[in-house]
Simulated scan of single mutants.
Amino acid sequence: MRILVGVDGTAASEPALVWAASEAERCGATLTIVHAWGAHLVHQAPYAGFSWRRDPSYLLSCGSAIIERGAALAQELFPKLGIERRLERGRAAEILLRLAAEADLLVLGASLERLDEGRIGAVLLACLRDCPCPVVMVPPTPCTAEALAFAHAGSQR
């Protein structure tokens, strides 16, 4: 079994990562942590000036740090968990949907600002609409050890 979780380095993706790691441990699944980077580089105008924010090596380094930070958190909380890291270049929705074809569950976080307005982001919307596997949207609330224990107890009934 494989659980796929998308991370983008924002506060909204951390509760999703923790929930996905908890579920992967409960089910005996492998956790695949995915970060998409560099989608906007494909559409950069040839006359656009240089910016370190568009430097591929900088973006790759940031993406790698996001993946490693997520993996370290998951490993700290669940030391026996099998973790796979995927750093993919391209549009997040396209990458997640492609990788979800080989997953049993896709887990994504949601931005609090958008949820408060009754909206969801474009990536989450695309995945909810087109995903070949079930999708879990985790709201951006702190996930405490007590909440995880409660969730585990409820899932074992």
Results as ranks from 00 to 15, higher is better:
residue 34 V to A: 01
residue 42 V to R: 07
residue 60 L to C: 12
residue 35 H to Q: 07
residue 134 P to V: 04
residue 95 I to S: 01
residue 142 P to K: 14
residue 117 E to I: 00
residue 15 P to A: 06
residue 2 R to G: 08
residue 137 M to H: 00
residue 134 P to K: 05
residue 23 E to F: 09
residue 152 H to S: 14
residue 76 E to C: 10
residue 27 C to W: 05
residue 36 A to W: 10
residue 14 E to K: 12
residue 77 L to W: 13
residue 85 R to D: 00
residue 31 L to A: 10
residue 6 G to T: 10
residue 28 G to P: 05
residue 111 S to D: 11
residue 4 L to S: 13
residue 86 R to P: 09
residue 13 S to N: 12
residue 103 A to Y: 02
residue 24 A to C: 11
residue 133 C to I: 14
residue 49 G to C: 01
residue 22 S to W: 11
residue 22 S to Y: 09
residue 75 Q to C: 09
residue 131 C to D: 02
residue 146 E to I: 08
residue 58 Y to L: 00
residue 4 L to G: 10
residue 63 G to C: 09
residue 91 R to N: 05
residue 41 L to E: 14
residue 1 M to G: 14
residue 66 I to T: 11
residue 103 A to T: 06
residue 37 W to F: 14
residue 50 F to A: 05
residue 71 A to M: 03
residue 33 I to F: 10
residue 131 C to Y: 06
residue 52 W to F: 06
residue 147 A to F: 14
residue 54 R to Q: 03
residue 31 L to K: 13
residue 154 G to R: 14
residue 16 A to H: 04
residue 44 Q to H: 00
residue 145 A to F: 11
residue 26 R to P: 07
residue 6 G to H: 05
residue 140 P to G: 03
residue 131 C to S: 15
residue 55 D to W: 15
residue 74 A to R: 03
residue 89 R to E: 02
residue 108 L to T: 10
residue 38 G to Q: 05
residue 100 A to L: 07
residue 65 A to C: 08
residue 43 H to K: 03
residue 101 A to H: 13
residue 138 V to M: 03
residue 36 A to E: 03
residue 90 G to S: 06
residue 92 A to P: 11
residue 33 I to A: 11
residue 103 A to L: 02
residue 94 E to D: 13
residue 23 E to N: 04
residue 20 A to N: 04
residue 143 C to H: 13
residue 83 I to E: 13
residue 138 V to D: 05
residue 49 G to I: 00
residue 4 L to A: 15
residue 71 A to P: 08
residue 116 D to P: 00
residue 31 L to T: 15
residue 94 E to M: 03
residue 118 G to T: 01
residue 38 G to R: 09
residue 27 C to A: 09
residue 104 D to F: 01
residue 146 E to G: 07
residue 51 S to C: 00
residue 1 M to T: 15
residue 117 E to Q: 13
residue 67 I to N: 10
residue 80 K to E: 11
residue 92 A to E: 02
residue 60 L to R: 12
residue 37 W to P: 06
residue 2 R to D: 08
residue 149 A to S: 13
residue 80 K to C: 08
residue 43 H to G: 05
residue 19 W to I: 05
residue 149 A to E: 09
residue 9 G to A: 04
residue 12 A to E: 05
residue 145 A to M: 08
residue 108 L to H: 01
residue 44 Q to N: 00
residue 114 R to H: 01
residue 111 S to T: 03
residue 138 V to A: 06
residue 88 E to K: 07
residue 60 L to T: 05
residue 39 A to H: 10
residue 106 L to A: 12
residue 79 P to S: 10
residue 120 I to S: 01
residue 4 L to P: 07
residue 74 A to G: 03
residue 55 D to F: 15
residue 117 E to A: 05
residue 86 R to Y: 15
residue 125 L to F: 07
residue 75 Q to K: 12
residue 70 G to P: 13
residue 69 R to H: 12
residue 130 D to I: 08
residue 89 R to K: 10
residue 147 A to P: 02
residue 40 H to T: 07
